[in-house]
Amino acid sequence: MATKHICQSGLFMRHIKKTFILLLTLAFLLSAVAYVSDFSFETIAFSQTWLNKIMNQTYFKVIKRTSADPTQKDLLAPSPSQQIQPRGTALYHYVAHPSNYHFILDEPDKCKQDPFLVFMVPVAPHQLEARNAIRSTWGNESSVQGKAVLTLFLVGLTGGAEAQQQLEEESRQHRDLLQSNFVDSYFNLTIKTMVIMDWLATRCPQATYAMKVDSDMYINVQNLMSLLLSPNTPRQNYITGYLMWNRPVIRDKNSKWYVAEELYPEPKYPTYLLGMGYVFSNDLPEKLVKASEKVKPFNIEDAYVGACLKQLGVAPSSPPDPSQFRVFLGQYNQKDFLRVITTILGSPQQLIDIWKDVKRPI
């Protein structure tokens, strides 16, 4: 009896041992699956907040940084299916196709008067001074050489209820603000640019030309209009500005312009136009939005537009006088600003001061 009891005890212990090993193996396999899958998203819901309301009760994901750099912050994005997340880098990017986003502030009837030229200015929500400087200078030009001109600003999410309220008040006052529900950040400039293209394609297809222009730029609208009214300037498949040829893709992870190989594997970018300001025939926005469905997004927005143009088979054009698209002009000289089309300035106040001087009688 004792022997039988000992045997039964032995069998029982072996059974427990096998069960323990099985459970241990299962736990190991589950851990391995979790590691391979790299679950780096934590779901959070912003219920009963201003952000929840303007995002139509959308759930969000917090994207955890994978870089060891402590200065890199977690980012907020619409959903993990809309993200490209290179491992081991501080770079995060979301799908650039504008169908993933919607407008919170819009001016859908702005183009009813059939503008000839539309300036689209991507700007950060907090940059009120820059917007006001443009409104009081080149953005105030509504008719040039008999052609209607329109200026609009595009921003992303503000990040706070008070800032959003201020933006909405500004919109009511000026009726020139567009806001879409993407996170407004440097890494999302590609999204911002494609949302601009989408707005032009869907709200303003009747315009003849448009110009994407940064908020720190001086624009000589008279010179630009002379270029566009020239009989030699095409009205289809045309885009011009400051051309960039044979530019290498930056692979240094410490660089502001770093692009991972998995986002853009080629060693050089196709020819593109520097993002400070490029003008294009208004048939292109719809085509670029369509092309973006086939071009993997990356964070260098002007080069990304170049990649979409390559997909379309459209080559950027050199302007008749390339010196009219200048990065910097150096020390101020009124004659220089009278002959350029665009150049970068240092501050909103500098734009106001130069504009006043350029407009004074010679």
Rank of each mutant, 00 (worst) to 15 (best):
F12M: 13
L23N: 00
S255H: 04
F41M: 12
E266Q: 09
R172L: 08
E170L: 07
E293V: 09
K4C: 14
V123L: 15
I134M: 01
F325E: 04
W199H: 02
Y258F: 10
S171Q: 04
A210Q: 06
T190A: 01
Q334P: 10
G277P: 04
T89V: 03
W138N: 00
V213W: 03
Q83P: 07
A130W: 05
W257A: 12
L23R: 05
L76F: 01
G156Y: 09
I344Q: 07
P115W: 06
K64G: 12
Q334E: 13
S99Q: 13
K147T: 11
S142T: 11
Q222N: 06
G160C: 03
V213D: 05
S215H: 14
I134V: 00
Q350G: 08
F12N: 13
D106T: 06
L345A: 00
T271P: 11
V305L: 10
S255V: 11
P322L: 09
S226Y: 11
L26N: 01
I21F: 12
Q72E: 10
S323R: 06
K359H: 05
K310V: 08
P348S: 13
F116L: 11
M120F: 04
Q85F: 04
S180V: 03
F46D: 08
D38T: 12
R247L: 12
P86N: 12
T190H: 07
T89K: 02
L117F: 02
F298K: 12
Y272K: 04
H126S: 07
M217W: 02
S185R: 15
R360T: 04
P316W: 00
Q48D: 14
L329S: 04
A77Q: 02
L274H: 07
V149M: 07
L11P: 05
V36N: 09
V36T: 09
T342N: 10
E169A: 02
A130L: 05
V118A: 14
K268F: 12
I21K: 14
E262W: 03
A161D: 11
I104Y: 01
T343W: 12
L273M: 10
M276K: 04
T49D: 10
I84K: 13
C7V: 14
S185P: 05
T271F: 05
A291V: 09
Q331N: 12
L24A: 08
A303H: 02
A77M: 04
N132H: 01
R175I: 11
G241H: 00
L22D: 07
E169S: 02
Y92N: 09
I352A: 06
G306Y: 09
N246V: 09
K17M: 08
E162W: 07
E293K: 15
G88M: 03
A133Y: 02
K256S: 14
I196D: 07
V295H: 14
G156M: 09
G277W: 05
D69I: 00
S317T: 12
A315P: 11
A161P: 05
N232I: 08
Q166L: 12
D357P: 08
L284I: 10
N254M: 11
S31D: 12
D114S: 03
Q349N: 01
R251A: 03
V33L: 11
Y304G: 01
C111Y: 06
Y59E: 15
L351F: 10
H174V: 03
E169I: 02
P231W: 01
E293T: 14
P319T: 15
G159Y: 02
L105E: 07
A34V: 08
N52A: 15
